[in-house]
Write a protein that binds this DNA or RNA. Sequence first.
DNA 1: TTGCCATGTGAATCCCAATTCACTAGGCTT
DNA 2: AAGCCTAGTGAATTGGGATTCACATGGCAA
Lengths: 198, 198
Amino acid sequence: MTEELLVPTRERLLQAARELIEEGGYGAASVVAIAGRAGVAAGTLYRHFSSKEELFVEVFRSVCDREVQAMAAAAASMPASSTHVDRLVTVLATFARRALRRPRLAWALIAEPVDPRVDAERLAYRERYSELTAEALRAGIAAGELPEQNVELTAAALVGGCGEALVGPLSPLASAAPGSQEILPALETFVRRAVGAV
Amino acid sequence: MTEELLVPTRERLLQAARELIEEGGYGAASVVAIAGRAGVAAGTLYRHFSSKEELFVEVFRSVCDREVQAMAAAAASMPASSTHVDRLVTVLATFARRALRRPRLAWALIAEPVDPRVDAERLAYRERYSELTAEALRAGIAAGELPEQNVELTAAALVGGCGEALVGPLSPLASAAPGSQEILPALETFVRRAVGAV
DNA sequence: TTGCCATGTGAATCCCAATTCACTAGGCTT
DNA sequence: AAGCCTAGTGAATTGGGATTCACATGGCAA
């Protein structure tokens, strides 16, 4: 066990699970595989988590938190003069860009089936994504940049649409990157139109 | 076995599987449950299908075919004077309306995880949905009703967006129908804007 | 030194659903 | 009637992965 004395076992298990999920989805992340990659025996996992499910929930949370932070950070780092629409587009484009960079992980977070408890987490984060989007929409409407609309539905459709538009082409082991170059600008156009921006 | 002598066992198995999936997803559709509901023993399933997977693929196909037909029929039954945009909206609204009526089934068709072979079918039908949508888009563009755009991406985003916008609010045992009344019109607005219709 | 606790081990066990198979049972043909 | 085929049965088997548990090991406090 002269392995990673630097990183505590619990962390290594979480990281191993994250990597395995990213590479091959939940199916590839068996207890034996996770423990193996972390450099410990299967039983050790249960010294740190009461079940595999609990570990998954924690992985899910940490990854989603990172995504939410990245989106919020992207919006926050824009010049103060930016329009609300530009901010919204940036948030969604950030979501899309990061998903494209890690398609398997994105698929796992957005749609891949899992145990109910993990699924509940998914729901919660879907909410947060939508909420981020909805806030931007409301600001845009208040500022007169956007027309009145059903904010919740538009937000959900945008988040879902971006997700599926990306996951669809890229999820099933699709080749390298058919055209990530074209995808992002086209998606931006889509978003601008969908929200009713001039 | 004086049961449904009217319907052959094979059909009854398919129907039982469809119903179970609609009620509780793939997880609820075990071989024993399917056979039980069809009024036969588990082993009998294998007299008619080489595996559970094969049965699922067939269920999946028949349900999706019905959906595609319904969407095409809705468009075909419109007055000849209808605009291409109206046809597109009708196709997607039909999709949405039917999905809302059977949320669990829609979830199973759109996103619920399954065996790879069934997943392959999903991909194929997603293509067909997108293709239906893309055709309508192209017609609208050719007729000058819509601006130029990345047709494939817009189509995918619309199909995905409609799917997720519906599945999101309604998939996880959400209460009766929070507001299906508001959903459809809002979705129509979303679609019209997203494609760039005036 | 002794005892205790946290951590780790990994083979054995448990679980659960798919699948098999030896065995009816009814009908049709010769 | 005898042979054969299709459809059905359901207990037993399989298979794969999660979970348990009896057994180390090493540090640290009394």
